[in-house]
Design a protein around this nucleic acid. Structure first.
Lengths: 221, 221, 221, 221
DNA sequence: GATGAATGAGTATTCATTCAT
DNA sequence: AATGAATGAATACTCATTCAT
């Protein structure tokens, strides 16, 4: 809610938006390449196309850059996501689509999501709280969808499992970025989405009464 | 394989081990608290109980500290994990137990795993490759177990889905640490394990032919 | 004499005067509060009621602001002082009044005098010389009065002591400002003036042949 | 009282003292030449004979340098002063000697006193209070002497005038430095001391019932 | 004449690393 | 082996000044 205002010495709001977009774009590239801490403000300024002095006309501190990145990435994720969503699907199909769309957006904004994901912890105080709250808001979207699906009779989770499942979906999405060193070498996005959707929905595909034998063990407590 | 030798000016191997254990312990605490970049070598030295000069008798650079941490955390994880595993369980129960044990170790070594998880990216070159390889080795354990379960007829995944599922399990374990700000507020370890195991094995608990009844309400506001 | 011209891009002399008066007023406040070096030109511009760009239409450099302040403060001091002086007093009374009036002006323009006093040293070259010359001019006023009093037979100083005494009077006036942290806590202006006038005129009020005894010790060294 | 501890990363107290003496000496020179604000920490380090990194092993911030200067200058003033004082003089002679000694110390430590005098205002908070308190302690020495002289019957001031007179003496001493641009061109220290002592003790040398006669005193010197 | 965005040289401070003792 | 003083490259941030609009 607090929106953690980033201070600027410039008055023209339009200009602020434009410059900050430049900053975010440059910062995402740099932070991806070398990480937040190793990237210097000067490098961000140069990559943004202006001088260090100008950079500081639009931010108050280096941390503000990181905040701008996180803030704008969330907004972009949500905005792109929503564009993929306007459908009239129902039931399981609808749930599938919500998740798949999210995965596709994450793939699309890969660098952005990865940076946000890995560097959020370097934010402090208010900024951190603000960003985490945004994360929760995304989680809530999934939670709502799951609840919806349950109301329609497709799912059987209780409330608490359902909340955790929402977190889970989010993480599976982000995993596409933070484990890309392994996962993206083995799978295309389409495959990833297909497999992970199946995993999420059906689990390991367990066949409880396995072949012949296997006397189902009495359930654990 | 390369084992990325960390240089030391000291001869006595026993001493090296002891000192490095001190360093790792101190570093885990500090890196957790302030992150790898914000923690200084001086602080690590102090927290380790010796001087900055002595610290550099046992490492070659700051990055070596991070490497030692990651390296030793993996070893510790594996070692603790193995201790929980010596059982004669079979089939699904065995799979369950392998996963549950891993989750419990992660919970036990929470700070360590979190640091390793969040700061690995700051390693470079050889050290990074070495650590990632260790990660892969853990993934392979799960993969092997899944294959085993499939051989016993409990699972129906194909090879590629199975490999991804192994990654997935790993991430679900780590998720307990890197999302602790949200997850650990809502769930105990036991609950987390219970819910996530169910999720991994059965997925959302889908009831494909839901309706018959279930006259999809036309609302959708 | 050089009057150290401060450059302006603006033609209208009337406007220049008005703007510079604004600048001086704002600057006195700021320099008092934070000192010349810590006050920024931006702050001066804002406090003056216009933009940084406009500020530089009326000055050539930050130092010019300080010069304008010093210059105008001297003029103001002299002008206010003269207004208090048009009397027909003679002799000691006249001297008293000249000094008292000066003290009162200093009290009146306290902030201004203090700034001028403490920051003059930051002026360079021509500007510094010009300001010091103005200071000398004030000193000369006292010197002339002392000479006058001597001619009338009230004083017995020789020329060189007299010149120093003129400096002395000036400093006692300024002391009211630069030691205000101590002096203004203990005395009202009126008391200060009374005590210091007495001190200047009669000294410590010495009674050379002290009580009875006191066999003045043979001089040392 | 608080002694406002300046932090140091170095443990050897002896070394700290030696290094800080170097720093103070270098700083006095630089601050005199260009002022506290225009002198850079790097220049201070170089002039001290070591690197910028080493400088910061002995101070916490630039302001600490100024504080060290002020602090040590006061101590040095007092120490040198006391060395000149151990005499058995009485009465007026004693008072004269106390003042004269102070003036000579100020002359001796001219640069130091001037810096302290002009830059004290740049100190903040605790440091400022501490330095001003030291100033007051010097004033108290004069006050005590004046009281003593009054008790012996040489002076006739009341308490409050006496307190002000003590301030006055201090300022007359410092005036030798902060008005050296004018005063030291006209007078030698000896002359300055002679004239100012006479001024302080006897004032302007007023002859209240002046006119008619005018027995101009045979010139002195 | 007024504005304010852009500039970049300059500055205090930090911190990994070395090396003489 | 241990110590800790010394180093200086690196870096975030400031601010006087310019100039196109």
């Amino acid at each position: 809610m607090g929106k953690k205002q980033v201070p600027s010495l410039v008055k023209d709001e339009r200009l602020i938006s434009r410059r900050r977009a430049q900053i975010v774009k440059a910062a995402v590239g740099l932070f991806n390449e070398k990480g937040y801490h190793k990237a210097t403000t000067r490098e961000v300024a140069n990559a943004s196309g202006f001088s260090i002095g100008t950079l500081y006309e639009y931010i108050g501190s280096k941390e503000d850059i990181l905040f701008l990145v996180c803030d704008s990435v969330y907004d972009e994720v949500v905005s792109k996501w929503e564009k993929l969503l306007d459908s009239n699907l129902r039931g399981l199909e609808r749930l599938r689509q919500v998740i798949e769309s999210y995965f596709r957006v994450v793939d699309d904004l890969q660098d952005e999501v990865l940076v946000m994901y890995q560097e959020t912890k370097s934010l402090s105080g208010e900024a951190l709280r603000y960003v985490l709250e945004k994360e929760i808001r995304i989680k809530n979207v999934f939670e709502k969808e799951l609840i919806h699906a349950r109301e329609e009779g497709f799912l059987t989770m209780d409330d608490r499992q359902l909340s955790l499942a929402a977190h889970h979906i989010l993480v599976v999405g982000q995993m596409w970025t933070f484990r890309r060193w392994a996962v993206q070498k083995e799978y295309s996005v389409d495959e990833y989405i297909e497999y992970q959707l199946r995993q999420l929905i059906y689990g390991f595909g367990v066949n409880e009464q396995a072949p012949d034998k296997q006397p189902v063990p009495q359930k654990e407590e």
